[in-house]
Simulated scan of single mutants.
Amino acid sequence: MKDVTEFTAAEILAIKVEQPEKLFTVDNLKTEKRTLATKWHPDRCKLDEADKVFAHIQNLFKVAEDRIEKNSWNGPATLQYTTKDGSTFKLKYRRVMELEVGKMYIGMKHLAYVITPDYEDLFRNGIKMINSIKYPKPKFEEQFKRQMPVIVKASETDIGFVVVMEKTEELVLLKDLLDYLPENKLDPRHVAWIMSTLCNIACFLDMNGIAHGAISPSTFWVSPKHHSGVLLGGWWYARPAGEKLLALPSESINILPKEVFVDKVGKTVYDRKLIKALGLECLGDKSHSGSTLLKDSSIPSTVLSWLRGATVPSAVDEYSKWGKARDDGFGPRKFVELIVDINQIY
Rank of each mutant, 00 (worst) to 15 (best):
E120Y: 05
L122E: 09
R124D: 07
E141K: 15
E100S: 15
K175A: 13
L174W: 02
K167P: 05
Y113T: 10
K225T: 13
K128D: 06
Y180M: 06
F204Y: 11
M108T: 14
F161V: 03
M108K: 14
F144E: 05
V162D: 08
W193R: 07
T219M: 02
I201G: 02
K137T: 13
V230C: 11
E170V: 03
L181F: 08
R95Y: 13
K134F: 01
C199A: 05
P224L: 05
K92S: 10
L205S: 01
L171D: 02
K90Q: 13
D121N: 11
K128M: 09
M104F: 01
V222S: 07
Q143E: 15
V114H: 06
M108R: 13
S196G: 09
L178T: 07
G213E: 01
I133L: 15
Y105P: 05
Y119S: 05
G160K: 06
P188S: 04
D121P: 00
V96R: 14
M148R: 13
K225P: 00
R94E: 05
K92M: 04
D179H: 11
F144P: 06
K225V: 12
E120S: 07
R124C: 01
V222E: 02
D118I: 02
K90I: 01
F140Y: 13
L186P: 05
I210H: 03
Y113D: 05
M207S: 10
M97P: 01
G229Y: 05
V222P: 04
T197R: 12
C203L: 02
V163F: 03
K137D: 04
V163H: 04
T219E: 02
M129V: 10
V191A: 14
Y180N: 07
I133K: 12
G160I: 11
E156T: 13
I115R: 02
L111M: 15
M148S: 11
D158R: 11
F204K: 07
P138M: 10
R124W: 05
P182C: 09
A112P: 10
F204R: 04
L174S: 07
Y93I: 08
K153F: 06
T197P: 00
Q143A: 12
T219H: 06
D206L: 00
V163Q: 12
P117D: 10
P224N: 06
C203G: 08
A154G: 08
R146S: 14
R146M: 07
D121K: 13
K128E: 10
P117H: 08
E141H: 12
N208R: 08
R94N: 15
E98F: 03
M108C: 03
M104N: 06
S216R: 03
F220N: 08
L174P: 05
P138F: 09
N208Y: 04
A214M: 00
P224K: 07
P117Q: 08
K109N: 14
T197D: 13
Q147E: 11
A112C: 12
G213K: 00
H226Q: 11
E170C: 06
E170T: 12
F161T: 02
H212Y: 03
K137A: 12
F140E: 12
M129A: 04
T197E: 14
I159C: 01
G213P: 00
G102M: 04
M104D: 03
K90E: 10
G107A: 09
N125Q: 12
D158G: 09
L205P: 00
W193K: 11
V230Q: 11
K175L: 10
P188C: 05
I194E: 02
H226K: 14
E156R: 10
L186S: 03
A192V: 09
Y135M: 08
G209P: 10
N131V: 02
